[in-house]
Design a binder for these strands. Structure first.
Lengths: 146, 146
DNA sequence: CTTGACCTTCCCGCCGCTGGAAGGCGCAGT
DNA sequence: ACTGCGCCTTCCAGCGGCGGGAAGGTCAAG
């Protein structure tokens, strides 16, 4: 199987496969006499595994660790679980950050007339971050626990 | 004011200020005879604005647009609002994606014993993405609307 | 006059690819 | 045999948003 075929079957672009090889995520493929990379079914499965793990947000390095565990018949599932839990924690941190941004932005937007006039609480809020803090508390009724 | 001072007062590292200048986010600073960059109060305010906008997740390019609006006394707040709303939409898309990842991962983790044995539904699920779909539906009671 | 903190430019590295150029290989058609 | 096309190879550059560090100039204090 040439790289184009394995790319199509795994869903990983040929350039990306070469990249993964160059950074050591996958071992160097065999070569034909002409220098073409040669792949087998196992490689398709590996690349699908990688694709899937990447789509779950694991970094290439983390995928490497997962691959190692996947190939290790003597692995402890606890190790895999630990990686996954850590990744969930990372995701949670990102979500928290994004929600914080979103909340601030939404608040600013809510206070902006959004018409032809230049007065803009959004710009004011960005210009003076202290107001962002104020903004977060200024119009909270009282029903929300801090 | 030298770059170190303005860096300290704005919270933007000197290297980053030079970078912002190099990509045209801020205009070229004035120079002393010796070639040192010179800044004033206005620059501190601008850099704080930038810092604040960046912390809300705006890209450097978007911050450029915000800065232009900020400096334009004839702006329409609707334009600012539109930028902010678009950014909120981008953030929402990211949050949605992260939550999807999180959901899948959590599900896999829930099914993994996480002990010394090698059997691992997490690895199985990653290896065969079809199972991820199954995983999403396999143990849903019936109370959840699709 | 020296020290040390500051400033300057420059280029490299990070992550995870993606695009493109220049050249070799394989096979079909004529 | 030759042409053409599509695939393969390598290498280099770039995206965003900086940070590290080298090599060298400047400034104020002692």
């Amino acid at each position: 199987m040439n790289i184009g075929t394995v790319a199509q079957r795994s869903g990983v672009p040929a350039k990306t496969i070469r990249y993964y090889e160059s950074v050591g995520l996958i071992p160097s493929a065999g070569r034909t006499a002409a220098g073409y990379r040669v792949y087998g079914e196992r490689d398709v499965a590996t690349l699908r595994f990688i694709q899937s793990a990447r789509s779950l947000g694991f970094s290439v390095k983390e995928v490497g660790a997962l691959l190692t565990l996947w190939n290790d018949r003597g692995r402890a599932s606890a190790d895999v679980r630990a990686l996954a839990l850590q990744h969930i924690a990372d995701i949670d941190a990102k979500i928290t950050e994004l929600r914080s941004m979103r909340g601030t932005l939404q608040h600013l937007v809510d206070h902006c007339a959004g018409d032809g006039r230049p007065d803009c609480p959004i710009l004011d809020g960005i210009a003076d971050p202290a107001r962002l803090g104020i903004a977060a508390a200024c119009c909270r009724p009282e029903g929300e626990a801090g």
